[in-house]
Computed example of a mutant assay.
Amino acid sequence: MMPLWQRPIDLEAINAVHQGTLMEALGIEITRITDTALFGTLPVDARTRQPHGLLHGGASVALAETLGSVAANLAAPPGWMAAGMEISASHLKSVRHGRILGCARPLHLGRNTQVWEIRLEDEAETTVCVCRLTVLLRERSSSSAP
């Protein structure tokens, strides 16, 4: 069986790439990578709440897409990159404070596409959102970002 990750795993380097981006602005952090999954967190605070004081659904989707995209790129063959095609989210429970933990796991790793399931949980380990991300694999051009 081929290993899931096709690139070196360096959490510090992965998080450093997110400086100056939406991920940094929202406080998203990749926290752990195992043999079969990628994990990250999102704070529930003034940056990520909607006017009613609840976690904004868009912030949940931003976390899910970040985790799925990072995972997809780490799982892509050398010389290839993953680009998001579609994401869906089912918001199951509201959250007012704390941190959200997300876990991305592959459902399909094909030659041209990958499908990832991303589950988001609150600090009580209750599932608050389930997302599915589909990405397209394409050869990395010399002008593509890392």
Rank of each mutant, 00 (worst) to 15 (best):
W5V: 12
I9C: 00
I9S: 06
D10A: 04
A13L: 08
I14Y: 10
I14S: 08
H18Y: 00
G20D: 00
M23S: 14
M23F: 09
E24R: 01
A25H: 13
L26S: 03
I28Y: 06
E29A: 05
E29V: 13
T34M: 09
D35L: 06
L38H: 04
F39E: 13
G40W: 08
T41L: 02
T41E: 09
T41D: 09
T41F: 04
V44E: 09
D45W: 08
T48W: 03
Q50G: 07
A59S: 13
S60C: 14
S60T: 11
S60D: 04
V61Q: 13
V61I: 15
E65G: 11
G68I: 06
S69F: 10
S69T: 13
A71C: 06
A72P: 03
A75D: 09
A76R: 12
A76L: 07
W80R: 15
M81T: 05
A82L: 13
M85A: 11
I87M: 12
S88W: 05
S88R: 11
A89L: 14
S94N: 13
V95G: 07
V95A: 13
R96M: 09
R96F: 01
H97D: 14
H97I: 06
G98E: 10
G98R: 12
R99M: 14
I100L: 14
C103S: 11
C103F: 03
A104F: 05
R105G: 01
P106Q: 08
P106E: 11
L107D: 05
L109G: 03
G110K: 00
R111Y: 01
N112W: 00
N112P: 00
N112E: 00
T113A: 04
V115W: 01
E117P: 00
I118V: 15
I118M: 03
R119W: 02
R119N: 11
D122C: 07
E123D: 15
A124G: 03
A124P: 01
T126V: 04
T126C: 02
V128Y: 00
C129I: 03
V130A: 03
C131I: 03
L133D: 02
V135A: 12
V135Q: 09
L136F: 12
R138G: 08
R140C: 04
R140F: 03
S141M: 12
S141F: 08
S144G: 13
A145P: 10
A145Q: 12
P146M: 11
P146D: 09
